[in-house]
């Protein structure tokens, strides 16, 4: 799996897939996409990195994958609390307009999902990679 072609191609592919995952994440609220798919796409990029370069992905991440997952859940809870203080109900959506773009707590929730899915999938993939 580590021929020259794939090693050169992987560099570009990983960058493109990561960008695409961010695109999916941001597109998600009103269109197909969202944190779950985005997280999966990002996880694909990182697993590809691990497979092609035979290097443990976890060393290159700022936290261990399981901790990224936990952080994701924390971000989700945070969006709930923000709703509680801003809208009166737990998980209420709060929206602000910045330069014509609507940003809100659902996006924060989606980022949480993104991180959770990313961490979980990378965790599973690295586990299998290491035990192979």
């Amino acid at each position: 799996m580590s021929t020259l072609i794939i090693r050169v191609a992987a560099k570009y592919l990983i960058a493109v897939i990561l960008l695409y995952s961010l695109f999916l994440l941001l597109r998600g609220h009103n269109n197909p996409g969202g944190g779950f798919v985005g997280g999966l796409a990002a996880a694909i990029a990182w697993s590809m990195f691990g497979i092609v370069y035979k290097e443990s992905v976890t060393k290159r991440l700022f936290l261990t994958p399981s901790k990224i997952s936990a952080l994701g859940v924390f971000v989700m809870l945070l969006s709930g609390v923000m709703g509680l203080f801003g809208g009166g109900q737990f998980f209420s959506g709060i929206w602000v307009q910045i330069g014509g773009i609507a940003l809100g707590t659902p996006l924060i929730f989606d980022i949480g999902v993104y991180l959770t899915v990313f961490g979980a999938v990378v965790n599973i993939v690295t586990y299998f990679e290491e035990s192979l």
Binding site: K67, A70, V73, F74, G80, V81, F90
Partner: peptide, 21 residues
């Protein structure tokens, strides 16, 4: 009424805290 969510919320927060530390 929001107190209804509180036990679940506290439990999840502490689950995360226990996980990190």
């Amino acid at each position: 009424n929001q107190v209804v969510v509180l036990p679940v919320f506290i439990a999840l927060c502490f689950a995360l805290m226990m996980f990190f530390f």
